[in-house]
Design a protein around this nucleic acid. Structure first.
Ligand code: SF4
Ligand code: SF4
Lengths: 141, 141
DNA sequence: TTGAAAGCGGACTAATCAAGTCCTATTTAG
DNA sequence: CTAAATAGGACTTGATTAGTCCGCTTTCAA
């Protein structure tokens, strides 16, 4: 009937949880360079998974990294400028309450023309976004 | 590492979207008794799926129903007393940002003891809940 | 009294997604 | 030149979602 929905929003994926823990850890170690291995050990996150999460955060400019033997990660900006919303987006991509609100998927729903809830849901989506945009990793004491 | 997470929250499931549309429709037809078939036709929702959604809303006391030839559904209370949060809960069960915050699953996570984000996430969860508790189907103009 | 129209409800399937693993580069200090 | 680190693609597994199917029960009216 409706094309299957591929987007989750607001329920944290494990990856996002791991990202938050990792970012907290890195933040607490500031300005020391921290390795994926160290975080994996201290916070008990599977190493391979964590690696990819950190790489992703790096590619999204939330972290900076140095390669090589004594490499590691650092926050790319101060903790109170790293917003939850951006972390979620970096890791899980664009998400929204409904399919039609995800950029790139507008019009894949099929009910969109006749949909009676799209407009109110759009408003609600904005409120949810505001909530997540208002939190930074500094709030994750 | 961590037991797989079985809870989604805040991304609406299609069922919740359908529920909202159906409730809007029933609300608009008030106080006429409305059948699942009629809603299915008018709103373009698969009949079988919709049936189960309505049944669920009924069993959760959000709708009332009458069986038999001229049966159908009615709102069990006024639209401004039917909260989004309750609809979501009726349909998808208990959900939360993280596994550890779902009643019945406390302690299934495995990281719970050492988790550095549980407390801030708990706070955030409350804010999210407040948001959904503040919306009723009257807000879904 | 019987049949059609409605609600009730479990079992099932197919597609999709999340979580985690594995493997192979590339970079760089010592 | 090698060990330790980041980088990143391919893959597997299990869980979840969306949707279907089928049979039962209730009620009304012909
Ligand atoms: S809100 Fe309406 S249009 Fe948007 S995805 Fe849900 S059904 Fe389709
Ligand atoms: S304890 Fe920490 S890791 Fe486990 S579910 Fe709760 S928040 Fe996520």
């Amino acid at each position: 009937m409706i094309s299957p929905l591929s987007s989750k929003m607001i329920r944290f994926s494990k990856k996002v949880e791991y990202a938050l823990m990792a970012l907290k850890f890195i933040s607490a170690s500031n300005p020391r360079l921290v390795t994926a291995r160290e975080i994996s050990d201290k916070v008990n996150i599977p190493y391979d998974l964590l690696s990819k999460i950190l790489q992703r955060l790096k590619s999204e400019k939330i972290l900076s990294s140095t390669q090589g033997t004594h490499g590691g990660y650092l926050l790319a900006s101060s903790p109170d400028k790293i917003f939850l919303y951006e972390i979620m987006r970096a890791i899980d991509g664009d998400r929204a309450l409904t399919e039609c609100l995800i950029s790139g998927k507008e019009g894949e729903c099929g009910l969109e023309d006749s949909c009676s809830i799209k407009s109110p849901v759009t408003k609600l989506q904005k409120e949810v976004e505001e909530l997540f945009k208002s939190k930074t990793i500094s709030d994750f004491v």
